[in-house]
């Protein structure tokens, strides 16, 4: 009985040590492979208002993703350029004045509302301000 409990105790110690060793190996491995936090923040993006003439769009990197600002007759709108269907980047169709996702032909209005195709949601809006001839996103 005493031998059995000693064996059980030693077995538990061995299993505990093995689990600790595996955890000690997996933690650095996870940290090593985890995506870098730099570039995913919400740092502001600024550019001159003249870079976006009426009827045209400008794409930019924002918070580790892609954004787009478009100037319509109604004014400036900043949107995420990532299609809500499967994550492709939408393209601005100047002649039709809408966004087209080339992957599966999803279409959006300049305000990001879905016109046709498979996208389940509109393009998310990004915060936009204008000051002293500059466009500030974020």
């Amino acid at each position: 009985m005493e031998t059995q409990s000693r064996r059980k105790f030693l077995g538990s110690c061995l299993v505990g040590t093995a689990i600790a060793a595996v955890a000690a190996a997996l933690y650095p491995l996870y940290r090593y492979l985890a995506p870098s936090q730099s570039g995913t923040g919400t740092a502001k993006v600024t550019f001159a208002a003249t870079e976006v003439p009426e009827g045209e769009a400008k794409f930019f990197e924002y918070a580790g993703s892609t954004g787009v600002v478009v100037r319509t007759k109604g004014g400036l709108i900043a949107l995420s350029a990532v299609c809500t269907h499967l994550g492709c980047i939408v393209q601005w169709e100047k002649d039709k004045q809408d966004f087209l996702c080339p992957c599966h032909a999803g279409r959006y209005t300049p305000e990001g509302t879905v016109i046709s195709g498979p996208p389940p949601r509109p393009l998310p809006k990004l915060p936009l301000t204008q000051a002293e001839g500059k466009i500030i996103i974020g």
């Binding site: 650095p28 491995l29 940290r31 090593y32 985890a34 870098s36």
Partner: peptide, 9 residues
């Protein structure tokens, strides 16, 4: 210097 535990690997 930058990657977490990169030095270890």
């Amino acid at each position: 210097n930058e990657v977490p535990f990169g030095w270890l690997i």
